[in-house]
Nucleic acid binder design. Sequence first.
DNA 1: CTGAAAGCGCTTACAG
DNA 2: CTGAAAGCGCTTACAG
Lengths: 340, 340
Amino acid sequence: MKKEVVTLKKLSQILDLSTSTVSRALNDHPDISAATKEKVKNLAKKMHYVPNIFAKGFRQHKTNIIGVIVPNITHYFTTTMVRGILEEAAIKGYRVIISESNNDIAKQTEMLNTMLQFGVDGMLVSLTKMTREIDDVLETLNKLPLILFDKVSSKIPCTQVTINDEQAAFDAVEHLINIGKKRIAIIKEQDFSYTSQKRFAGYLRALKENNIEVDEKLIMSVDDITLENGKQMTSHLLSIKHPPDAIFAITDSAAVGVIQTLKKFNIKIPETIAVVGFSNSRLSTVIEPNLTTIDQPGETIGKNAVKHLIEEIETKSVTISNKMIEIKGALIIRDSTFKA
Amino acid sequence: MKKEVVTLKKLSQILDLSTSTVSRALNDHPDISAATKEKVKNLAKKMHYVPNIFAKGFRQHKTNIIGVIVPNITHYFTTTMVRGILEEAAIKGYRVIISESNNDIAKQTEMLNTMLQFGVDGMLVSLTKMTREIDDVLETLNKLPLILFDKVSSKIPCTQVTINDEQAAFDAVEHLINIGKKRIAIIKEQDFSYTSQKRFAGYLRALKENNIEVDEKLIMSVDDITLENGKQMTSHLLSIKHPPDAIFAITDSAAVGVIQTLKKFNIKIPETIAVVGFSNSRLSTVIEPNLTTIDQPGETIGKNAVKHLIEEIETKSVTISNKMIEIKGALIIRDSTFKA
DNA sequence: CTGAAAGCGCTTACAG
DNA sequence: CTGAAAGCGCTTACAG
């Protein structure tokens, strides 16, 4: 199965040069004459020489591998970020190792450790929902460059790349206000979720700036922001004394559940109750009426995260960089609300 | 940034043993006394010793990395396979490097090569659609264990894991026949797509076994089986002299396009035209009417592929294994057809 | 401009 | 049961 492998040594024997020279020629070292370089490179190409990355990495304490941890790889939005990460990393000559934490803190910790042991040059982490428990991330951060993306936490002192959740949520809710809605419900996650917190903050600010009073009865918090929970919360919202005239679900999945339930009860969308989601997932143009939502540029987020990580890896700056990079999300208005 | 790292040497100095002994103790070599083992292991744990995987891999010509290449990582079905791969690989102590070929032959070739150079122990490949050009895959197969999954090709002599496309398509079409449909159209890809070929074969067999004549006018072939193409082909099918009374689209996306177009023309589903898709994607329960489709157990496929690959890696058997593993898909009947 | 030699951290055949 | 030594394939400070 294993075919004989071409090494530096073999090349050097054939060319009657030392391995040092061959190595330097291949790496374009300025000391080497142009003639030698060409000779070496030609032979290398002819013999399909590929450097043994492990010997190289071992020698240089560098693996050119980036570790990525995401909570759930089956989310469409996550895959768009992953795509951006893969693309940008490939361009810069890095490989990517991906793991899924399944929103499980213990699993996340285990992954941080195995990636560490594996010798990745840096890590890109999208946190589990339990952002309270960040000790292990902090510890990892002490050992190598680490950047948070998408699911981030202000409690971790490192560069973070995310969409501007607060502003995007603000835009979504203000849009509802602009089309005349006054009793706007929100379906969000519990407060441990940083993303949910920020979107909720945007919701509150939009109400406040438009002098609409907050009604606690319209604020639904669930453990897990799924389609199913979207349905349940909607049923509940329909049963209260003064039901809402709009529902802002902080994910598209949940918003789809909202719409399905409203339709079940023959409630007019958006006339009686308007609906806004968040993500611009593929579901949003299949559900009827099509869902007004926030488009999140996943690829851009992924690429940005990689760029900053590689910068930190390659500059090896001891200064801890702690940038907050916010990528803009855009409100996309569809039939589940009105054009203002 | 870099903290002092604990090596075998350091441990051996502290314990006043040779590195050989420490190495063997850590690896549970039978020669080492239980007492020594315990002493060594305790210290290793206390000092948070982690072996340098690169030194190890370099030494043993083994990296414990599996390379994965998929055409498109944003497809939901693909992510479920990836999830299965990650899970199973982690259990067996392997890491996974993922790349996306974007259905581009040149990119796939490039990825095969960089993964090779990267020293992966084996590869899991889901082919681009252009399965005609397989030279590079064949060449890679000569150098290390490689297994095809999902998008496979009978022309490549290696183990392949896929769902039983032919039978699943047969079941789907026979279901249409059972509910009384006689003019069943298919929307498929061009013949270079192996998956499409197999599903088409199932379609043909179902017609044949039920004595239904094939009508070439009902066979639509597109370059790319997208939602948009599903729409276009449906418009076309509606315009022909004798339109179909059922449409089998070989992916859910296309089937969604079919349904959207039929609804636009106020055609009753399933009474006038029934629709079947393939994949059981999330769209299938959001589109209305809900889509009858084939459920593909992605995680099972992923896990199976990893299992077989690791077996090949670890047995290093020179015998080329060439198993065809077919995972069963299941027909899920929803409102876009009738219960038989 | 080129080469000899050391060393990265580990494993393992050989010796005792 | 333990150790000394070689070697995996590369890079690089040192020497010339």
